[in-house]
């Protein structure tokens, strides 16, 4: 459990305090994957560093597993940091050490130097991230995705309860991003690890996160379950992020709605509703006609969802909408 209580942060520059994060409170539950999304400069790197106190808050308290991090003296803080793994956008591996030495590094830092203990643990970690054959290579001999896997193995070395991901996939190509995200999801599932990740890509949030907070100009402007935020974004920044995550056809940006007759509606299905042929059934029963303008069917983490933009015509549109709501479909009427 990570808990921020009235935390704020400002930097001192040129004799003035420049606010980086507005006062906020936030709870992140054990075992969840929590995403923080924002543009660069929104304060997300600062926020994630407040958890292991790489950045000290200007005010407020930070608790990790009921330990008040902000009250710890240096040695206790170091001990606590060993229980929080962290991975980075640019991997930050030791270039002078092999893959195995990099993974062993945090174990050695924690005082365990016996090869009989360290070596099997390193092997187990490298096997988990799929790099068992690369133990004796140097980081410069690896691809970006492999380097991040080493970073993940290293972050897991001391069996942390929390993993912080600082733009962990931002330097990777889409395929590598997908495989690293799949690995993170697997770790979250199997090790019951809490994951906090920051990103500027909504797609990353959609694929792995349970909950999300949207950061804009140093303030949390929206937060909630990923499905809620993704399907019904409220804040302008959130909407921009969501639209970026969707292909143009799904947003329907290029369709000239003005010429389409009927009422413009956006239907959102999630979970079980995605699996039932509700739209066809309701159309038959009420005799309405519909014209699909844009649509997308995908998954939010493990939850299947669909979103359709359509124009509906007929005498009994209201009855049809009521029947669709009955079937668990969320409906938004779009302005023309």
């Amino acid at each position: 459990m990570i808990r921020f209580v009235d935390v704020h942060k400002s930097y001192r520059a040129g004799g003035r305090d420049i606010p980086a994060l507005q006062p906020f409170s936030l709870d992140i539950a054990d075992g969840e994957v929590f995403g923080i999304i924002g543009l660069s400069g929104a304060g997300k790197s600062t926020l994630i560093r407040l958890i292991n106190l790489l950045e000290r808050p200007s005010g407020g308290q930070v608790f990790v597993d009921d330990v008040e991090m902000t009250a710890l003296a240096e040695p206790a803080l170091r001990a606590q940091r060993r229980r929080i793994g962290m991975i980075f956008q640019h991997f930050n591996l030791l270039a002078s050490q092999t893959v195995a030495e990099n993974v062993a590094f945090p174990i050695r830092l924690a005082g365990e130097r016996r090869a009989a203990v360290v070596r099997p643990r390193v092997e187990e970690l490298l096997a988990r991230v799929g790099l068992a054959d690369h133990a004796d290579k140097y980081p410069s001999q690896l691809s970006g995705g492999q380097k991040q896997r080493v970073g993940i193995a290293r972050a897991l070395a001391n069996r942390p309860s929390i993993l912080l991901c600082d733009e962990a996939t931002s330097a990777l190509d889409p395929q590598t991003t997908a495989s690293v995200l799949a690995l993170l999801a697997e770790i979250n599932r199997e090790l019951k690890l809490t994951i906090v990740l920051i990103t500027h890509e909504m797609d990353v949030v959609r694929r792995v996160c349970d909950r999300v907070a949207v950061l804009d100009g140093g303030a949390i402007v929206e937060r909630g379950s990923v499905a809620d935020v993704f399907l019904h974004p409220q804040h302008a920044t959130t909407k921009r992020f969501v639209n970026e995550a969707l292909p143009e056809e799904a947003v329907g940006a290029h369709v000239p709605y003005a010429q389409v007759p009927g009422r413009l509606l956006r239907l959102s299905f999630r979970g079980d509703a995605t699996m039932t042929p509700a739209l066809g059934r309701v159309a038959r029963e009420t005799g309405i006609d519909f014209n699909i303008l844009a649509g997308r069917i995908d998954r939010i983490k493990d939850l299947p969802y669909g979103q359709l933009t359509l124009a509906m015509q007929g005498d009994r549109v209201d009855a049809a909408l009521a029947a669709l709501r009955q079937a668990g479909i969320e409906i938004e009427e779009l302005p023309r």
Partner: peptide, 27 residues
């Protein structure tokens, strides 16, 4: 030496001496 590598070792709970001995000098 990359600032990020130093930050990573701080995140791993390295002391100043450990950073000098095991990160700065080898890197």
């Amino acid at each position: 030496v990359q600032q990020g590598v130093i930050e990573a070792s701080q995140a791993m709970g390295a002391s100043l001496w450990q950073i000098v001995r095991h990160v700065l000098l080898p890197e």
